[in-house]
């Protein structure tokens, strides 16, 4: 009896472990991408945006590299019937039209991004070992997100 119980639990538990291990691995690859590319350094981001200052065009190459693998990759993946670990694709389908409702939000994001040189991904890579300012950044970012979630709900 205990055997059958173990067996009925075995598959979901291993799938859960796989989900966590792969999620962690993808996060590590993404985080290393931010570090290697220089996105994790706020000065590098600001210098990309500050065309009339000490302009550093490196970040155009980050976007270029990501999209160069992204375009063919997404095209191939979206031909699949389902993802490997979940039942169905949950990718946005409203992509063909400009959605005016999101543009003020995008503008507010661009303003904050330029002020600080930090977007949400690098906020996470900066979290460890950069003192109270980095922790405060994540805290205030989460507060902004919470307000946004409440407004949208």
């Amino acid at each position: 009896m205990s055997n059958s119980k173990t067996r009925s639990l075995a598959l979901p538990v291993s799938t859960q472990v796989l989900t966590l291990v792969i999620g962690l691995s993808i996060g590590l690859i993404f985080g290393l991408g931010l570090v290697v590319s220089g996105m994790s350094n706020p000065a590098k981001v600001r210098n990309f945006l500050d065309v009339f200052g000490a302009w550093d065009p490196s970040l155009a190459f980050v976007m270029g590299g990501a999209i160069a693998v992204g375009v063919p990759g997404f095209w191939m993946i979206q031909r699949r019937l389902k993802p490997l670990l979940t039942e169905s694709f949950e990718l946005p389908t409203n992509c063909g039209v400009i959605d005016r409702k999101i543009l003020p939000g995008a503008a507010a994001f661009g303003f904050g991004w330029a002020l600080t040189g930090i977007c949400p991904g690098p906020a996470l890579t900066l979290l460890a070992g950069n003192g109270l300012v980095a922790v405060g950044f994540v805290g205030m970012m989460l507060l902004g997100m919470l307000v946004g979630r409440i407004i949208k709900a």
Partner: peptide, 23 residues
């Protein structure tokens, strides 16, 4: 370095779509 880092970022985006079907 930025191009290579960008490729890693792209790969992680693709793996997320492939495994979890999400952006």
């Amino acid at each position: 370095a930025s191009l290579f880092g960008g490729i890693l970022i792209g790969v992680s985006a693709l793996l997320t779509a492939l495994f979890y079907g999400r952006i």
